Simulated scan of single mutants.
Amino acid sequence: MFFLRKACRLLFKALEWFAMICMVVLTVIVFTDVVLRYIFKQGFSWTQEIATLMLVWFSLIGMGIGVLEKIHISIEMFTAKLSSRAISVLETFNHILIAAFGGAMVYYGLLIMNMTKLSTMPATKMPSSVLYVILPLSGLLVFLNALLVAVKQDQKIFKTSGGSAGEEETHA
């Protein structure tokens, strides 16, 4: 069980880093393109496609991470008067619905990838399915993370061993 927990933590951190790298690449590409277009009156033709790719990948990976960290939007006004047991049941049901949404993302993401595998993006000539490959992957991440949070509702998912400043705890 320790190995599985450590592997999940490593995967989670790798996904966080990948999402951060996508955001940095997006920022650098857009900034460079703006400078080239408005100061030098020319730019690259591929920047919009790569920026779109990075934005979609960053957003969908961030959604999967947000499910595990329970940082998705919620309105607490309606649950403020409920008992802690009722809130726990409601949150478990909520995460089961989120898991179902993740399953739908996997299914429809695979359909979209299949439909777009023969078309290419105009500037980069990459297959259009590259843009959509993140749909089933993030759907799987959302599905697994939502089920994990639903099962371990009141427990920490990743326990830190040393409590060092570099390690963050993820609560469920």
Score class of each variant (00 low, 15 high):
residue 28 V to D: 01
residue 30 V to C: 08
residue 31 F to V: 15
residue 34 V to P: 01
residue 36 L to H: 09
residue 37 R to G: 03
residue 39 I to V: 14
residue 39 I to N: 11
residue 41 K to D: 11
residue 41 K to I: 07
residue 42 Q to V: 04
residue 45 S to L: 09
residue 45 S to T: 12
residue 46 W to K: 00
residue 48 Q to K: 12
residue 49 E to M: 01
residue 49 E to C: 01
residue 50 I to A: 05
residue 54 M to Q: 02
residue 55 L to R: 03
residue 56 V to D: 05
residue 56 V to F: 08
residue 57 W to E: 07
residue 58 F to P: 00
residue 60 L to I: 08
residue 62 G to I: 14
residue 63 M to W: 10
residue 64 G to L: 12
residue 66 G to C: 03
residue 69 E to W: 02
residue 70 K to Y: 11
residue 71 I to T: 14
residue 73 I to S: 10
residue 79 T to M: 08
residue 81 K to P: 04
residue 82 L to C: 11
residue 84 S to F: 08
residue 84 S to R: 11
residue 85 R to I: 08
residue 92 T to M: 13
residue 93 F to I: 14
residue 99 A to Y: 00
residue 101 F to L: 12
residue 102 G to H: 06
residue 103 G to D: 05
residue 103 G to C: 10
residue 105 M to T: 04
residue 106 V to S: 01
residue 106 V to R: 00
residue 107 Y to G: 03
residue 108 Y to P: 02
residue 110 L to E: 07
residue 110 L to A: 07
residue 113 M to P: 03
residue 113 M to H: 05
residue 114 N to Y: 12
residue 116 T to L: 13
residue 117 K to V: 14
residue 118 L to M: 12
residue 118 L to C: 09
residue 119 S to D: 15
residue 121 M to R: 12
residue 123 A to L: 04
residue 129 S to V: 13
residue 131 L to E: 08
residue 133 V to C: 15
residue 137 L to C: 11
